[in-house]
């Protein structure tokens, strides 16, 4: 019990440092805001449960991303078939930059929605590649999270990017 209490500061720090990234990762796996919030909590809970067994074999970021993606994969399976109509998909909780002109704000929100929708339409393994590269991970870090070689990362990333361009209506 005391060991768990010792982990609390580390867990709080992880949530502070990686909370935004976890929220973004959840966008890759869930379109409905209320369900996405639950998914983010699930991921945080999984991190807490695994934290006692974390021995630093990989970086903390890799540890967090692995758990987040694995939980996301399970979530996709549990939520299948998609049982929400499109009008339930809430995007209004996404932040809007108040410094921008209203038209630019709308355009920004539209681009963001198009990007997240396009990512959500990809096969789940491609989604992971795209989300990880958008989070700024190197090929080596991606290989570590996904458990594949760096060469394989390069090949699959290229394929995933082409699919994303196709989904965005751009020429691959």
């Amino acid at each position: 019990m005391s060991e768990r209490r010792d982990l609390e500061p580390q867990f709080d720090r992880i949530l502070r440092e990686h909370g935004a990234a976890i929220s973004r990762l959840a966008f890759g796996y869930e379109a409905v805001a209320s369900v996405r919030e639950e998914l983010v909590q699930d991921i945080a809970l999984a991190i807490w449960q695994a934290l006692a067994h974390f021995r630093g074999e990989c970086s903390e970021r890799t540890f967090v991303y692995r758990i987040a993606h694995n939980r996301g994969l399970s979530h996709v399976w549990k939520r299948r078939p998609p049982h929400q109509p499109l009008d339930e998909i809430e995007e209004s909780d996404q932040p809007i930059d108040p410094r921008l002109h209203p038209e630019e704000q709308v355009a920004q929100a539209d681009r963001r929605t198009r990007l997240t929708s396009a990512i959500q339409s990809l096969p789940v393994t491609h989604r992971q590649m795209i989300v990880l590269i958008l989070e700024g991970l190197s090929h080596a870090q991606m290989a570590e999270v996904l458990g594949i070689t760096e060469n394989n990362v390069a090949v699959r990333l290229n394929r995933a990017r082409n699919m994303l361009k196709g989904a965005l209506g751009e020429r691959p």
């Binding site: 999984a46 695994a50 067994h53 974390f54 540890f63 692995r66 758990i67 993606h69 694995n70 939980r71 994969l73 992971q128 570590e144 999270v145 996904l146 458990g147 594949i148």
Partner: peptide, 10 residues
């Protein structure tokens, strides 16, 4: 305890 592993292993 599979979730801490890489996605492939998971």
């Amino acid at each position: 305890r599979p979730e801490t592993q890489s996605t492939r292993a998971f």
